[in-house]
Write a protein that binds this DNA or RNA. Structure first.
Lengths: 379, 379
DNA sequence: GTGAAAGCGCTAACAC
DNA sequence: GTGTTAGCGCTTTCAC
């Protein structure tokens, strides 16, 4: 009764033993052929391949994993959102993982998920993975006392400090504060006396990094550090923040921690009669695909998701396959400020004073050049 | 030498036999406890749990899969893009899969990928999955002669015809043409004599469905069916299409197959001096998060991604676990037209004639009400 | 170059 | 309620 069952009616899948029998070789030889091991004569190799083809054989991964102790899969912990950043990172990771010959297992953490990252990592470990990628984790500490989960496989953390204990812990995507610096400096270079910041939720490391980069730049230039307004990444929260910011006639430049919020912000400013960029300049973050096509086209910092994923995964796979070797060194991702039409020099003092009085909704037809970002938006 | 190796230095993971020994029971009993099988005394259960805890035992999934023939994982084939639609669907699927107790394996297909969907499905089958979700496939036929891959596990196809052969093939997310109908009818109801369509790439079933819904509505109402303009889902392509559409003074209403293209379209119209919605009404598709905050706030059709994922997965899991039962019937997803400020009745004839002459760029300050979508965008 | 034997850690079927 | 006996389909080790 070796050929067993296959409940449900479908015939049992052929095993390497079946292939071996058909090809007239030993089971081990079949294994050799499928693992591209040397020392198999061309003739035998051909016979095996043919037999396998004929039977529709595909090797059983569970058995392979059981016998070898390696699952040849990598798990990724990601946020359960379609936000452009996390989603882009995930796609980047998938692309690279496939090329490395590993399979990808995905687990989400929701914000406010009681189990949090530790739970997600745990479920990956349960499933069996050879390495783990934690993408843009948020800091659940406080709700969830025990941080620093202990993991037995190499881990790559993207966009956060390495807060796990593992045989190898790698980091990638730490450029956020530098990018925030670039954005802030662009605004300062245009002549703004200071720059306001519309921050992301501070439980996100990504949000903290951007805030830090902004603050550091202001301090380095001896500028005032205005109070921070915080959103939740959504355009809706950007809109709310924009309402508040528009009240303050001193605001001439805002650096938003992502593009979605920037778009909501721009809309709120427009609704309040403050023009972008004549009255207020806005810089976003991410360079989402529509950024070049909103009104006005958004100046923003492009995140190098693919580069980060590729570089990080390469190092992770290296750590998996060479447990005793030194880890590969990280390399710095490029920084890419895309200047479009949402930034300009600040308005003159007198113009600003006027704006402060006329805080009500501005009528169309105000005699002022319309900020048309040129014919074809640049991207 | 039973406790073997653990190369790299980490000690070998404990097995259920180790736990059994420590708890003073048989290995099978440990298995019972971990599978929540009945007929285990509370006392034994406690002892086993404690022993497992102490050893840091976690059961080996490879062994489980090998012995049971089930991997307890579901594979999903998705497009390798961060496009809002596919990304939302993937997140929705993950969320539901976890609740069902299955693990999720993800494989992308890139557009133009030579292996295509068949290749992705194949790699999933290689990995070993109990069921497969194919999300928003595109039609690679022509490049890739052999369609209809033969699969041995149940398959759920989201947003496309069931083009595989499998023990169970389920469908979900077929509401697109109905939604397109709703969008088109909204425009017709406003008084537009006809509606133009900015379509998605026709290799996507999703794009075809929307086009068909649009065409059918026009035909049903006895309207002209204008020539279709096609984009690639991006705002950039929407912009290009908008340039062309703006030339044609007869265009007063456009239904765009997604929101990104709609945003590019709106911008192109604005650049050409055609106001939205006074001169041209635009309806999008998806209801992406920024849709309520662009200028003007976009009227669009919201896609019920979560509902589709949830309902589809429920049926897939049912098919996996009850191979001989009848499949669960599909249920119709809700249709949700979100009316914002990008749609309005068509301009009067005379106004339109005027617009046709002045095809050049309109100056700001034109005496015309500004399309301010009200204070707080509705969402 | 190839094969035989052992066993990875579980679940399945049955005995007690 | 609990234990025993067999494999699941591979990889590993070592013999030839």
């Amino acid at each position: 009764m070796t050929r067993g069952t296959g409940r449900g009616g479908s015939p049992a899948a052929p095993s390497s033993t079946d292939v071996a029998r058909l090809a007239g070789v030993s089971q081990k030889t079949v294994s050799r052929v499928f693992n591209d091991e040397p020392y198999v004569s061309a003739d035998v190799r051909r016979r095996v391949t043919e037999a396998a083809e004929r039977l529709g054989y595909r090797r059983n991964n569970a058995a392979r994993a059981l016998a070898s102790g390696r699952t040849r899969s990598i798990g990724v912990v990601t946020l359960g959102t379609a936000l452009y950043g996390p989603a882009s990172l995930l796609m980047g990771v998938e692309r690279v993982v496939r090329d490395t010959g590993y399979a990808l297992r995905v687990v989400n953490t929701m914000e406010g998920d009681p189990a949090g990252i530790a739970g997600a990592v745990d479920s990956l470990l349960d499933q069996g993975v050879d390495g783990i990628v934690i993408s843009e984790p948020i800091d659940e500490a406080g709700e969830n006392g025990d941080m620093a989960p202990r993991v037995g496989v190499p881990v790559l953390v993207i966009g956060a400090p390495p807060f796990v204990t593992a045989p190898a812990v790698l980091n990638a995507g730490d450029g956020a504060d530098l990018m925030a610096r670039t954005a802030t400096e662009h605004l300062l270079a245009l002549g703004h006396t200071t720059v306001h910041h519309l921050a992301g939720p501070q439980r996100w490391y990504a949000a903290r990094d951007r805030l830090e980069g902004w603050r550091a730049t202001l301090t380095a230039h001896g500028k005032d550090v205005p109070e921070v307004v915080t959103g939740d990444w959504s355009a809706a929260s950007g809109y709310t923040a924009g309402r508040a910011l528009a009240e303050d006639g001193d605001v001439t430049a805002v650096f938003s921690a992502n593009d979605d919020m920037a778009i909501g912000l721009v809309r709120a400013l427009a609704d309040a009669g403050r023009r972008v960029p004549e009255d207020v300049s806005v810089v976003g973050f991410d360079d989402i695909p529509v950024a070049a096509y909103v009104t006005p086209p958004l100046t923003t910092v492009r995140q190098p998701f693919d580069a980060v994923a590729q570089e990080g995964l390469k190092r992770l796979v290296h750590a998996i396959e060479n447990p005793d070797a030194d880890p590969l060194p990280p390399s710095d991702p490029p920084i890419d400020l895309v200047v479009r039409a949402s930034t300009a020099p600040p308005p003159s003092r007198t113009a600003r004073a006027r704006g402060r009085r006329t805080s009500s909704r501005r009528q169309a037809g105000t005699p002022a050049a319309r900020p048309e970002g040129g014919a074809a938006p640049q991207h």
